[in-house]
């Protein structure tokens, strides 16, 4: 993944206002006159990646043997 897109992912993850604008008005969010089809695809990818991270954060915390863990009834 390009450094530029990683920077965009980080900003969209940490700046809710920027993320909303990237969704609703990516041209303004990125300060461009217009977006090429490739650039729009990259914006979509960035937004999908941020959504994936949000899901990862929301998942059950790390120590348990339940969701994405393993073991009988999550205990042993």
């Amino acid at each position: 993944m390009s450094k530029q897109n990683r920077t965009l992912v980080l900003r969209a993850l940490t700046d809710a206002k920027f993320r909303r604008q990237l969704q609703s008005d990516p041209v303004t969010a990125l300060g461009k006159a217009k977006l090429t089809q490739t650039q729009q695809q990259e914006v979509n990818l960035v937004l999908a990646l941020v959504k994936g991270i949000e899901k990862q954060i929301t998942g059950v915390a790390d120590q348990l043997l339940c969701v994405n863990g393993g073991g009988c009834r999550g205990i042993a």
Binding site: L10, L13, T14, I53, E54, Q56, I57, G59, A61, D62, Q63
Partner: peptide, 12 residues
């Protein structure tokens, strides 16, 4: 990846 969720939580 046991720490991943929490580190990303801190990041976000």
């Amino acid at each position: 990846d046991r720490f991943s969720g929490r580190v990303l939580q801190m990041l976000a």
